[in-house]
Amino acid sequence: MEPTRSEIVVITGASAGVGRATARLYARRGAWIVLVARGRDGLRAAAEEVEALGGRALVQPADVSDARQVEAVAEAAEEAFGPIDVWVNCAFATVFAPFAEITAEEYARVTDVAYHGFVNGTRAALARMLPRDRGTVVQVGSALGERAIPLQSAYCGAKHAVNGFTSAVRTELLHRHSRVRVTVVQLPAVNTPQFSWVRSRLRGHPSPVPPIYQPEVAARAIVHAAGHPGRKQYLVGAATWATIWANRLAPAALDRYLARTAFDTQQTDARPESPPGGNLFTPSDDLPGTDAGAHGVFDTCSHPHSWHAALSRHRGTVTAAATAAAGAAVLAVRSLRR
């Protein structure tokens, strides 16, 4: 018998945050991982971690907003490792500021990374997966792609666009009866280094809106989604679920609530750490703490686990258990009546 081939995974935005945590988790599974980001220091550190944890790493510095660079990454990945099994789009960029204070160039840059980067990654992945009729693309989305909030209009717009684009691609795959799958993992607020790197015009340090989860919560959901891509999307964290449903049931009330609270909850009293320009146009190598790893500065107030995410991953088992429990309750009631 031939030995089992290791899973080959491409992760964009792999130098820090959720992408870095996802690379670590795949490495523990023995995967061969192509690490993609602009920051070379973070990529080198991520590669060392992957190798130490039992995986193999291929470092590919690239700007995902450039389709030619992304195509080159895919070519290098398959030349070095073989056919790509999973492509995770996770690159991130944003500006924290009111819309009227964001320049056209800044808005375009966020859109190029957080939306066109996902389009470019999906295109490169499908060009290789479709002829083989196998493979999975995971889009790392956000609750903000379903419900926008103030001070992040560019990022929210990009995440809404990712949802629409992915739905269109999914229906095209269904039309051609393809076994290639694409799914979205909608994340809650996550404690990543990006909040110390983003371009910001806020008076305080940018902050994720509580409740905040650790990147490992997101990584577990991403790896599970890649292995079970039949679902359209996975909602991570009770806050994501509650936000989406609140927006569907009472959008006007949620507008007023966010207008009243979201300006303060997205910043702390501390002074911003990063230079005013942040890492929007410049790789994080040029910023302090270039290899920040997966976690940001909010460790003390971040949750390492999400019961909602765990239940979501095992929805079939939970449903079966609930059905069995309900059946047992009915039988118990009937026996009491005899």
Rank of each mutant, 00 (worst) to 15 (best):
I8L: 12
V9S: 07
G17M: 11
T22E: 14
R24C: 12
R24Y: 04
A27L: 12
A27G: 09
R28P: 04
R28Y: 04
R29P: 05
R29F: 05
A31S: 14
L35D: 10
L35P: 07
L35T: 08
A45K: 09
A46K: 07
A47K: 02
E49C: 02
V50M: 06
A52R: 15
G54K: 12
R56G: 10
L58M: 13
Q60G: 03
D63N: 15
V64L: 10
S65H: 02
D66Q: 13
D66H: 07
D66W: 01
A67Q: 11
R68L: 15
Q69W: 04
V70N: 06
A74I: 03
A74Q: 07
A76G: 09
E78G: 07
G82Y: 04
P83M: 13
D85G: 06
V86I: 13
C90M: 08
C90N: 15
F92V: 08
T94Q: 11
A97R: 10
P98R: 15
F99N: 05
A100C: 05
T103P: 02
A104P: 02
E105I: 04
E106Q: 15
Y107N: 09
V113T: 14
V113K: 10
H116I: 04
F118S: 06
N120S: 04
T122S: 14
T122M: 15
L126Q: 12
L130H: 00
R132M: 08
G135W: 01
V138G: 11
V140R: 01
S142H: 03
S142I: 05
A143Q: 13
R147I: 06
Q152P: 00
S153Q: 06
G157M: 11
A161N: 03
S167N: 13
R170Y: 05
L173T: 06
L173H: 04
L174K: 15
S178K: 03
R181N: 08
T183Y: 01
Q186V: 03
L187W: 00
L187H: 00
S196N: 14
W197A: 09
V198N: 09
L202R: 06
R203G: 03
P206F: 02
P206C: 09
P211S: 11
Y213M: 06
P215T: 05
V217F: 00
A218C: 14
R220S: 14
R220Y: 07
I222W: 00
V223G: 06
A225N: 09
A226D: 10
A226M: 12
K232Q: 10
L235P: 00
V236T: 00
G237S: 03
T240F: 00
W241S: 11
A242C: 08
I244W: 00
N247R: 12
R248M: 08
R248W: 10
A252D: 13
L254K: 08
R256M: 08
R256L: 13
Y257V: 15
R260T: 10
A262E: 13
A262Q: 12
R271G: 01
E273N: 07
P276G: 07
G277Q: 14
N279A: 14
F281Q: 10
F281R: 07
P283Q: 11
D285A: 05
D286R: 14
D291F: 04
G293R: 12
D299E: 11
C301N: 03
H305F: 08
H308L: 02
A309I: 01
R313H: 07
H314N: 11
H314R: 10
V318R: 14
A320R: 14
A321T: 13
A322H: 06
A325F: 02
A326W: 03
A326M: 08
A332P: 00
R334C: 11
S335M: 05
L336H: 05
R338T: 08
